[in-house]
Computed example of a mutant assay.
Amino acid sequence: MGAIRFLCTWMGAVLLLGSLFSCREDLDKSQLKNYEGPYRISHNIELLHSDSALVRTKLMAAKQLEYLNQDTEFPEGIVIHFFDKEGTLSTTIRADRGYYDRKNNLYRGEGDVQVENLQKEQKLSSEELFWDPGKEKIYTEKFVTVEEPDRIIKGTGMEADEGFNEYTFNKVTGVINNAL
């Protein structure tokens, strides 16, 4: 009687396991795709770059997304401060969204992009701007407005040093002298 009970229990278990595996649906291959989203999310970041014990740049963002290819996205905006040789804040860049392309060592700001040279009282506005830290240049191919104390310059395409001290336009579309 004990052997029959054991055999019935064993047979029941085999049938139960067999029914579990035989009812398996075909696997959806799309669910096996590699994850391409961010692998790390950071909040309220501050990145400092120094040279000769002086801070040269300070990057700040409310949110940073890092990807496996080491590219970075700043979906809630980015602010970059540039400091002169004495360590004084000289220029700021602000953008609604920011991106860092690791392979090309290139930052891109999008949306409402503002650059301000605090010492020269110059302001730049554009919808896209690139910063190349290796070449210490900022540039864009988009429409740009530059406001100076005595004039406003509008144009398409611009290149400047990263401190926004000297710049050139690809195509100037208007200059308005300030009558004040």
Rank of each mutant, 00 (worst) to 15 (best):
R56L: 05
V144L: 06
Q114W: 01
G2H: 12
V144P: 07
A179R: 15
L89M: 07
Y167L: 08
V115I: 10
P75M: 01
E162K: 15
S125I: 09
L68G: 04
E166G: 15
N165W: 06
G87W: 06
E136G: 11
Y99R: 02
L59V: 05
V175N: 08
F6K: 09
N170P: 07
E128N: 11
K33H: 09
Q114V: 01
V175G: 07
L16C: 08
L15K: 03
R151M: 11
E73H: 07
S22H: 09
E141I: 04
E46F: 08
E25T: 04
S30Y: 01
F74P: 00
Y35I: 06
R108H: 07
F130N: 02
Q122W: 13
D84Y: 13
W131Y: 05
T9Y: 15
Y35R: 03
I138R: 04
G18M: 01
V146R: 03
D112C: 04
W10K: 15
G2W: 14
H43I: 07
I176L: 12
Q114S: 05
E25A: 02
M1T: 14
A61R: 00
G174E: 05
L59R: 04
L27A: 06
N117E: 08
I93D: 00
A61T: 00
F74A: 00
R97L: 03
L89T: 07
I152R: 07
L32Q: 06
K103R: 12
F164H: 12
D96H: 06
K137C: 03
D150T: 14
S22A: 13
V55K: 11
F21W: 10
K33M: 13
L129R: 01
D51V: 12
N117P: 05
R40N: 10
F83N: 08
L68V: 04
E46G: 06
L180P: 15
K171Q: 13
L129T: 02
R5Y: 13
D28C: 11
V55E: 11
T168V: 15
I152G: 02
E36S: 12
R151K: 13
